[in-house]
Design a protein around this nucleic acid. Structure first.
Lengths: 206, 206
DNA sequence: AGACTAACGCTAGAATTCTTGCATTAATAG
DNA sequence: CTATTAATGCAAGAATTCTAGCGTTAGTCT
């Protein structure tokens, strides 16, 4: 008997399986863009993906499983961070880019909103969300590292917390206080974070 | 024929109707505390409230309708805001009180998380959430008004936006980046907001 | 007290969601 | 190329969720 035959956990990453996964996740993405979380049903996704419903149920179990997988796929994409040569400019540009992303890309916004909602009832969604933003903010902290390198900030500055403080008001308004997000909001968050950072408000100690 | 008999829209606020509403909302609250959003089903709520399922369906339609009504009831409760005589202290105390509330009261936390999740797929939940935090932050802005009165801040300071900036990092971590919230987070948010406010970062113009 | 009727309980069943078993297809190993 | 089997499609049905009809209960008005 062969090695792989003894291994029931061995999967089939190639061909049809991978193709179906892409088709299904693309369908989830499209559904989110058109109808949002409300219209995201196993049946709609399956039909749009040209795949049987049982396939979706077997591989992803729930709609939460679908959006978690989609977020994971999105997390692997690279994105550039501003590096204009001054912290104030970089923070403002970054905050604006977040607002612009969610204003112009309703699908991405729906995805984030959906995963945030799913995280309330599903630990896996919660973990995926955590991992996504931990990675994203860690990478965005390069903005802070550049500022530290230029001597604008103390080397003990906690970059991740600074980035979180920058982004927080945008997500707060988008998800909690539920008003439209706009550029003035981004600029205010950037300015406030910048001023606080200069005073050492994000010093991580040590 | 009587006046009320001609008016099919006339409701019956008293007696059984009001009693059942309280019983059902209490049941929603209890379910949220025990099992969170995941265990919040029409049937569980009805059984716990000692009411038939059809009654719950007829009056609230969905679980989102239930949590919206519960949030509305919660919104009417009064709560005190710190007034220690200095803006820095008041902001720190207020931020800490938010963290403490959600750490110690899992039920309230589950309610907020649930309504945030529901707002994604339900416009009425979105409106209710908006109204709740608009009112809450407007009332909390009394902290800023006191500081303005003492001459600590310019009179053009936007109190609601300042309060939002203070609370945002807490909600961001609780709902988006999904890490445990704690007192250091509250203190950092309060300190950063205080410093930024002194520099006029929340000046509303005019 | 008596008339009126909104709100409720109950039942049946419609609709939707999810699972299971089996035959078929297609990726992988030898 | 052939054997093996993971992954899929399909169909039947179990389970859950939601709705509708109807008699009963209990506020409300006179």
């Amino acid at each position: 008997m062969s090695e792989s035959a003894n291994n029931p956990g061995a999967q089939r990453p190639g061909g049809r399986t991978a193709r179906n996964r892409e088709a299904v996740l693309d369908a989830v993405f499209a559904e989110l863009g058109e109808t949002g979380y409300a219209g995201l049903t196993m049946e709609n996704v399956a039909r749009r993906a040209g795949v049987h419903v049982t396939t979706v149920y077997r591989r992803w179990r729930t709609v939460e499983g679908l959006v978690v997988d989609l977020l994971t796929r999105l997390g692997t994409t690279e994105l550039p961070f501003p590096d204009a040569g001054s912290l104030a400019d970089d923070l403002r540009d970054f905050a604006r880019s977040i607002v612009t992303l969610y204003v112009e890309n309703a699908t991405i916004r729906a995805l984030i909103e959906t995963v945030v909602a799913a995280a309330t009832k599903n630990p896996r969604a919660s973990d995926a969300l955590h991992a996504f933003f931990a990675d994203r903010n860690r990478r965005a902290a390069v903005i802070v590292e550049h500022a530290v390198g230029r001597g604008e900030l103390p080397s003990t500055t906690d970059g991740v917390e600074l980035i979180a403080a920058l982004a927080a008001p945008i997500y707060y308004r988008m998800l909690v206080s539920r008003r439209p997000i706009d550029i003035p909001l981004a600029d205010r968050a950037a300015n406030a974070t910048y001023i606080a950072a200069l005073s050492g408000a994000f010093d991580g100690g040590a």
